[in-house]
Design a protein around this nucleic acid. Structure first.
Length: 424
RNA sequence: GGAGAGGUGGCAGAGUGGUCGAAUGCGGCGGUCUUGAAAACCGUUGACCUUCACGGGUCCGGGGGUUCGAAUCCCUCCCUCUCCGCCA
């Protein structure tokens, strides 16, 4: 959520910036400013009332002590009045705070100035492309065919045991998954990240902290009995480690990496892009998270971008990097790079990573701050990225590397798989 | 799941319903002393809202209540610990 002071002091800029996200903020911003003014004046009135009431309470104490009953009783009546006033004011104040927050939470993050305008993913800007698109043999088939031909992923079995979008990985398929997870984790650790194994369920406060709640609760699985949500990404638990935390400046940047399963209801996405591994309800992902100094977060974003690119190079996958346009960038993000790999049998680009700088948007929600050298507390910046999400990487690896005699594993992965190719 | 104990400042640990944002110790920071360090001594040391500032207000796990006045009493939720049961 945006800082009130920024909205107050740069009202027009906020409105103009949000227009890039195709978000008309004029009404909302005006409402927020009005509510904020009311809130502050009510707060002032309440503070004054409380001050008087505190003073009187002290006087009463002293009067009782010195035996001046009558005087004390008189003051007591006055105090009671103040108390009623205070109650009334407090009620108003709370109402104002609630409505203010409701409005504030509806405002998306401001897009970075380099975010291109646009409405849909068609308008995203391809900023980099690397790797050769492989020539496939005549017999080439999409990964879901390969999955059953080689017996490495069983979608039907998943449907039987759980439902659509929950595949079983089997034999060399399972081994490949495990290899990728270890490979990704090791690469991050080499770059100085601290590995975490987070809980897979999170509470409401955490969901709010990273911005999944209150808006996207329909996208998360919810355990009603315990009021817990299954994580849609490790970003949620790993960033929320720092909820209500004040770091020291020298602690920055914090670099954490976590492997986790991710759960997404994907309500409302149907059609052919859900075939095979393209879109699942449960999938595995290695996520990198950084908490950065506000002055350095864009350097960190570039660093993370390069890090993801390196992974794709090592996996020898053709990929491209997109800078998301205003219409496609998420509610919480200021700047996002998407990574897509080319899946040669499907002949399409698949998103395998999304690297974002949230600036202080999440930090403000979860009160993640640091104390600078002057001893002042400031909001930190949060960033995260997939490095990487497995299913579509697997899809591309399978499709692009299929040969007559099997599916070849890229060099970098072989120490992890323990085999060079997948065979029937 | 059952029974009990408890949640106070970075940590440890006091706190008769009134003068407690909170003793004390440790730690941190600054200083004196020292060639330097240690020790000793002195001072300082939370967050948030509001204000140009002075100042004012809120916060003793969360929420609610009693009272003129609550860290202190009551209710409720959460969490931790101990014992029992169950169990990967």
């Amino acid at each position: 959520m945006l800082q009130l002071s920024i909205i107050r002091e740069n009202k027009q800029q906020v409105i103009d910036r949000l227009a890039v996200k195709n978000f008309n903020a004029t009404l909302l911003v005006n409402e927020i400013i009005t509510l904020d003014e009311q809130r502050r004046s009510t707060q002032k009135q309440l503070d004054d009332t409380l001050m008087r009431s505190k003073l009187i309470a002290k006087e009463i104490g002293n009067l009782f002590k010195s035996g001046q009953r009558e005087e004390a009783e008189k003051k007591r009546a006055e105090s009671l009045q103040l108390k009623n006033t205070a109650k009334e004011l407090e009620r108003n104040l709370n109402e104002l705070i609630v409505s203010l927050n409701e409005k504030l939470v509806e405002l998306p993050n401001l897009p970075h100035e380099s975010v291109p305008p646009g409405n849909t993913d068609k308008d995203n800007e391809v900023i980099f492309e690397e790797g050769e698109i492989p020539e496939l043999p005549e017999t080439a088939v999409p990964h879901w065919e390969l999955a059953s031909q080689y017996g490495i992923i069983d979608f039907d079995l998943g449907s039987k045991v759980t439902g659509a979008g929950f595949p079983f990985y089997r034999g060399q398929g399972a081994r490949l998954q495990r290899a990728l997870i270890n490979f990704f984790l090791d690469e991050a650790i080499k770059k100085g990240y601290l590995e975490y194994q987070p809980p897979l369920l999170i509470n409401e406060d955490s969901g709010f902290g990273t911005g999944q709640l209150p808006d996207k609760e329909g996208q998360m699985y919810f355990v009603e009995e315990d009021k817990l949500y299954l994580i849609p990404t490790a970003e949620v638990p790993v960033t929320n480690i720092y909820r209500n935390v004040i770091l020291q400046e020298e602690d920055l940047p914090v670099k954490n990496v976590a492997y986790s399963s991710c759960f997404r209801r994907e309500a409302g996405s149907y059609g052919k892009d859900v075939r095979g591994l393209n879109r699942l309800h449960q999938f595995d992902k290695v996520e990198i998270v950084q908490i950065a100094h506000p002055d350095k977060s864009y350097n960190v974003l570039e660093e993370m971008k390069n890090q993801v690119a390196e992974l794709l190079q090592k996996l020898e996958l053709p990929y491209r990097i997109l800078k998301l346009c205003g219409g496609d960038i998420s509610f919480t993000s200021a700047l996002t790079y998407d990574f897509e790999v080319y899946s040669a049998a499907q002949k399409r680009w698949l998103e395998v990573s999304s690297v974002s700088n949230f600036e202080s948007f999440q930090a403000n929600r979860m009160k993640l701050r640091f104390k600078n050298k002057e001893g002042k507390t400031r909001l930190a910046h949060t960033l995260n990225g997939s490095a990487l999400a497995l299913p579509r990487v697997v899809a591309a690896l399978l499709e692009n590397n299929q040969k007559e005699d099997g599916i070849y594993i890229p060099e970098a992965l072989r120490p992890y798989t323990g085999f060079n190719k997948i065979v029937k």
